[in-house]
């Protein structure tokens, strides 16, 4: 009994660690698209592990948590894709480190790259 609760707590803790790294990534990344990368990925695994940890801690909640995980897996990529697409359409600049932008080339638009030098 106690071991199961310990296991659940550890899994939830690892999940929150990933959520923290995601937040750190949002602060540290240079442009919107890279922020979106950390924002999607860390929150997905972080949320999944946190919910799973709660489900293992209280076994009677496990089915609910599995349903929540399924919904997060289905909706999380859609929202970040939509945000990235909208950002590209409105011409939010990419960082200076960017090597290619095939989407702008395809639409015959100038590649939106940041102008001022960035302080790293």
């Amino acid at each position: 009994m106690a071991i199961r609760e310990l296991l659940g707590s550890i899994i939830a803790l690892i999940g929150s660690l990933f959520l923290f790294l995601g937040a750190l990534g949002i602060v540290r990344m240079p442009d919107l698209y890279n922020r979106m990368q950390t924002g999607t990925k860390s929150t997905t695994l972080g949320t999944i592990l946190t919910l799973l940890g709660i489900g293992i801690y209280r076994l009677e909640w496990l089915p609910q948590m599995l349903i929540l995980i399924a919904f997060i897996l289905a909706t999380n990529p859609v929202s970040s894709h939509t945000l990235a697409r909208a950002a590209h359409f409105t011409g939010i600049p990419l960082t200076r480190k960017t090597v290619a932008d095939k989407l702008a080339e395809e639409e015959h638009r100038p590649i939106p790259v940041e102008e001022e030098e960035e302080v790293v």
């Binding site: 990344m29 960082t95 480190k97």
Partner: peptide, 8 residues
């Protein structure tokens, strides 16, 4: 941060 981003 080791990144080399782009849209392919």
């Amino acid at each position: 941060i080791p990144i080399n981003p782009g849209i392919v």
